[in-house]
Design a protein around this nucleic acid. Structure first.
Lengths: 184, 184
DNA sequence: GACGAATCGTTCGTGGTCGAATAGTTTCGA
DNA sequence: TCGAAACTATTCGACCACGAACGATTCGTC
């Protein structure tokens, strides 16, 4: 019967993931800010100016993901990216005035109703929830460590040579100017 | 202190989401099957031939998402999509022999180590985890219902006219032939 | 029988996510 | 001093995810 519980847990996890995503879209329609964008903004608000990599680390996403999120925030003038003059490999990210203002008016990145309901539970139960989630994270991330060699079977086609053309012409940009402007 | 717990819970949820995604990529490299693809395959294996919409419902994803996943599975010959002759709006999805075979050899879509560790816990603890997760889902999905009017502020730019050109020429395809073949 | 409403699946557009590859910098050892 | 190794952030390619819009089909009602 461990089978049934395992499937139930997986199902719950998938629904939780979906719930988070759906709330993110709700945020996006109402505040023009997705969940991950808001999480980044809040982290910047709390920790002040940090490097792009530190930000990625502190909100638990990969560097490419953070880069993409920062692109959109930058494009909208909510954050600023400045090359670190001391170590020019690094990029320092900081909130703009508009970004700081938005953080103050935006809701929590956790479902509001979930947050409310959570707040109404006895604190013993809140702690139980917290503890259980931490344990799951622990079990998951322990797995990630001995994650093995990553055999790289290729991009998930099993056949069909992809034949990617080279898309050149990406001259280096200086961060001070916003990149990836598909628009104009 | 509810503040601290709320943030801790959010953080755990985000890491769980990430953990699921990372495991999905691991699956992809080792078995050429992502987590969502495997979940769909398993569901088909369990429930037999169903319509695309029913499949989406049963694995808790939207119809467009299921459509995309089915595209990739179809492309690789793991599922078959046939127009329902009785109700020609519907598309019946079924495993091919190759798909059925793959389901038998593939691991669980839940992190293997997580599953193992989970299995070693006393069943009281397993049930506690299950119960807590269900409760979170419940609190989340209750929120989703009174989700409010969806004010549609526009596609998240606040300015900058997107100027989408029309991309016509999408003549209707008959499902029997695979669509979206970016490759060849 | 015909026409509008509902239903089904797909397409389009946007965004999040990651690993691999890449470009620019810094560091350190020979 | 000079070049290899390490590091930082970005780009690229692939996938998942959704809502809105769309075309095809069916249903309901007149």
């Amino acid at each position: 019967m461990t089978e049934g519980i395992e499937e139930s847990i997986l199902r719950s996890l998938r629904r939780i993931v979906r719930g988070i995503d759906l709330y993110s879209r709700q945020l996006a329609t109402r505040y023009s800010l997705t969940g991950p964008q808001l999480v980044c903004l809040r982290q910047l608000s709390k920790a002040g100016a940090v490097s792009a990599g530190e930000l990625a680390e502190s909100v638990s996403v990969s560097k490419p993901t953070a880069s993409g999120i920062l692109d959109r925030l930058d494009l909208r003038g909510l954050v600023r990216r400045v090359r670190d003059e001391a170590d020019r490999r690094r990029v320092i990210v900081d909130l703009t005035a508009a970004g700081a203002e938005l953080v103050r008016t935006a809701p929590t990145p956790l479902q509001q109703r979930l947050a409310e309901r959570l707040g109404k539970l006895p604190s013993a139960e809140q702690e139980e929830i917290d503890r259980v989630l931490r344990r799951i994270v622990e079990m998951m991330e322990a797995q990630a460590l001995d994650a093995a060699p990553m055999l790289t079977v290729g991009p998930l086609t099993a056949d069909a040579s992809v034949e990617s053309g080279g898309a050149p012409g990406v001259e280096s940009i200086d961060v001070e100017r916003t990149r990836r402007v598909e628009g104009s």
